[in-house]
Amino acid sequence: MKVHVDMEKCQHYGQCVFEADDVFSLGDDGKLVYKADVDDSRRSDVESAVDVCPMQAITVE
């Protein structure tokens, strides 16, 4: 599955990190880093990350 974060919207809160820390992380500079190609087995947690994003900046295909 393809994960996309709209970096115009993202405010780097890192709520997504708690749902799927193998996909999303915050760097030392506080900025969000994420994997764009993610195995389908991770869909449930990634969808949870989509749900909890305060800025609703994450989309999944």
């Binding site: 780097h12 890192g14 990190v17 915050l26 506080g30």
Partner: peptide, 11 residues
């Protein structure tokens, strides 16, 4: 405050 990246271990 402005420390999102540092909060994970505390949470």
């Amino acid at each position: 405050v402005n420390t999102s990246a540092k909060l994970a271990p505390y949470r």
